[in-house]
């Protein structure tokens, strides 16, 4: 179909350029997506209205919405869409656009950043470092405390590793530009984006209080990462795992 006449906004044009969003103009508002969504109660608009808002070029409303950050990537909507719109992939594209334009402030956005930074460091995931990075980014003390009992139980079952697994050359992963290194996000207050949709657009949002906390958080993360790195490299073979088993035994005893 011809889209030229219908593409009335830059935002809509940008969405049509993405892999998940190329068919958004096909949506005829049947609502199968929102009816299939397991997290529709968590959303402000739901996928059907989000699609309509994209068609109408409502950039700010769409990109400041929490909806794409609540998407659980279950592919129920995309699987059932009678127009073949890849709605789940579109949600990931909207997450990326929100990040590039400085609108990404959801805790899930911070989790994604922490995840990719951890993977960039080791080439693989290392859960304890991911948790440290995440909780330093969101500074969510209540949330952290709520996770402690479960964390201890998982530790007692040997479900949390003590040392990172690494690929032989983690820089190879970084060299593949997996993480956009020009994007520096500090806590949730500041977002400096050097590579926006239009190439070099830079948007900044600052909040001095959060900036201080964020810098402290980054320093803390760096120290922990350094410590973990030293542990991984410096410890004699077998010593750190043995210490891990001892700690595990201790916690199991405490939990009875």
């Amino acid at each position: 179909m011809s889209t030229d006449a219908a593409v009335s906004s830059t935002f809509l044009a940008e969405v049509l350029e993405t892999e998940g969003g190329r068919l958004v103009l096909q949506c005829y508002q049947c609502g199968t997506c929102s009816g299939s969504c397991p997290v529709i109660d968590e959303m402000e608009y739901g996928p059907r209205r989000m699609l309509h808002m994209i068609q109408a070029g409502m950039e700010t409303e769409v990109l400041t919405s929490r909806d794409m950050w609540r998407c659980v990537s279950c592919y129920s909507c995309a699987n059932r869409c009678p127009r073949g719109i890849e709605i789940t992939d579109l949600m990931a594209d909207l997450r990326r656009m929100a990040g590039e334009k400085g609108y990404a402030h959801d805790k899930e956005a911070e989790f994604g950043q922490a995840f990719m930074q951890t993977v960039q460091t080791h080439g693989r995931l290392f859960e304890p470092e991911l948790m440290v990075r995440y909780y330093l980014r969101v500074l969510d003390v209540a949330g952290l405390l709520k996770m402690v009992p479960l964390g201890l139980r998982m530790l007692a079952k040997g479900k949390l590793p003590f040392l990172p697994e690494r690929v032989s050359e983690p820089r190879e992963i970084a060299a593949m530009e997996v993480v956009d290194t020009t994007q520096i996000k500090i806590a949730s207050g500041v977002s400096l984006t050097g590579r926006g949709v239009e190439g070099d657009r830079i948007r900044q949002r600052r909040d001095p209080g959060q900036l201080t906390l964020g810098v402290l958080g980054l320093i803390g993360t760096a120290l922990v990462a350094l410590l973990l790195g030293l542990l991984a490299r410096g410890s004699p073979k077998g010593m750190a795992p043995a210490a891990g088993r001892g700690l595990q035994h201790f916690i199991r005893g405490r939990l009875g």
């Binding site: 990326r96 690929v167 997996v178």
Partner: peptide, 25 residues
């Protein structure tokens, strides 16, 4: 040997190419 993370659901949020590159490696 020397496998790396697949990117989970987070890679394409950062860079659409990464969502192919990480698994493709």
């Amino acid at each position: 040997e020397d496998w790396s993370c697949c990117g989970a659901v987070h890679a394409d949020v950062h860079n659409p190419d990464a969502a192919v590159l990480l698994p493709a490696r």
